[in-house]
Nucleic acid binder design. Structure first.
Lengths: 234, 234
DNA sequence: CCGGGGCTTCGGCGGCCGCCGAAGCATCCC
DNA sequence: GGGATGCTTCGGCGGCCGCCGAAGCCCCGG
């Protein structure tokens, strides 16, 4: 069975510290240049170039040229899901007293995860919507209830209307909170809407998000989320 | 961010050919001894021992002693999902004219994927249930319809009754067929039932399944699946 | 047209790690 | 108890691969 070899090859590709750092840097869904990725991984551009070439050839990354820059991004949501899963398992086990700095704290409060929101904010949103009967989430999947659809329409979320049947959403286990939040099409639409409403914006240099004053008001009114709900536990 | 290091470490663990082969061998959900895994990976027992120790310490495998044997299995469904995703991505890209032997052909027709059915059989089941309005499957998730619940009860499938709301099921992209089939709790329950009914049984030495005469009849009566439906394309 | 910056290719060095032989433990069977 | 079997630990060898310096290519701006 040579599919084993392909399995090992793909995993090994992710398994290098420099490449892993670059992939993680791309987990916010944006496209970055080779130079930015090199500095994110702490290596020289020429080394990064080699890595990026291999990742692209393997179908993990996609690249598009724009002038003299070359922008690299994750090739597909499947890649993002894969890294999510890896992070989940990686976070689960060893936990050897990682010193969590302030940057990390910002990340834990709110961030993007490829195309949807993650962190305590996302978990709080999922909790609120579940408590209100707007969505149902289990380990296997999730769906929006009729009440939820009405709520989302009111919020201006442009989730694809249910063709026939229910609008499903994918649960995504938060690596920092170890609780599920909303991913999939619905998660992406929610995230887009929050940006459009100016409720969140990217913090300088990183995946972390800043919740704007309008955002605090919006999340309170729409989901009943208070600032205390997003403070770290302990 | 030291979670990057953990990410790379976990991926690198899977990224070794010998370890990948052992993990793949465990993807049928059974527990194997170190010796069996060593031969599956084509290495000596002492080398396998080292690998198994590392995989277990990282939380990818679980081990239980039974007499002088030590049985190793995947530590959790999360690990199985991860490898699934890796196989999906690995199968997607390179495709360098892999000679598919007869063993591979058996694998493509029917096999187990950790705790549920996979291969053409599983895809045909998912297709039939979808066509009959018994389940709905999208990329984001899936659910059983009321009609589907009734059907499953009639079949004797012991899927946990819906607590409140719908019984979700997880879609799983088949690495050989590139089409989704049913995973999650429902997939596991269906698989268990098929074994209990004697419709399928394990082929000697491998993940491949053999469909019994009773199975052919059962799959025809229950799902309308004909032998032609499971023949390879081309 | 020419200078400069971003990116790539090439070559060689260095370290990590997977591999096996040999030896040591544990468990079961007779 | 003796011997066989299954598994582990130890030590040393060998190869793969990630790293950077230097040089070349491409695209932009002036």
């Amino acid at each position: 069975m040579s599919s084993n070899a392909a399995l090992a090859e793909t995993a090994a590709l992710i398994g290098d510290p420099a490449r892993a750092a670059m992939l993680a840097a791309l987990m916010d869904g944006r496209a970055l240049t080779a130079g930015e990725l090199a500095s994110a991984a702490g290596i020289t551009p020429q080394t990064a170039s080699g890595h990026l070439g291999r990742l692209t050839e393997a179908g993990l990354l996609a690249m598009e040229r724009q002038g003299r820059h070359r922008y690299h991004r994750l090739a597909s949501p499947a890649v993002a899901r894969l890294i999510e899963g890896l992070l989940e398992l990686a976070a689960a086990r060893p936990r050897r007293a990682v010193a969590t700095g302030p940057r990390d704290a910002a990340l834990r409060q709110a961030r993007t995860c490829y195309d949807h929101l993650a962190g305590r904010l996302a978990v709080a949103i999922a909790d609120a919507m579940t408590a209100r009967g707007q969505i149902e989430l289990t380990a296997d999947g999730g769906a929006v209830t009729p009440a939820g659809e009405a709520f989302l329409v009111g919020l201006g979320v442009a989730a694809a209307p249910t063709r026939r049947g229910r609008l499903f959403c994918r649960p995504c286990l938060d690596w920092s909170e170890r609780r599920p939040h909303v991913a999939g099409v619905l998660g992406a639409a929610l995230c887009t809407r929050c940006f459009a409403l100016g409720w969140v914006r990217r913090r300088a240099g990183g995946r972390a998000l800043e919740i704007t004053p309008a955002g605090w008001a919006g999340f309170r009114d729409a989901f009943g989320i208070a600032p205390e709900d997003l403070r770290g536990p302990a």
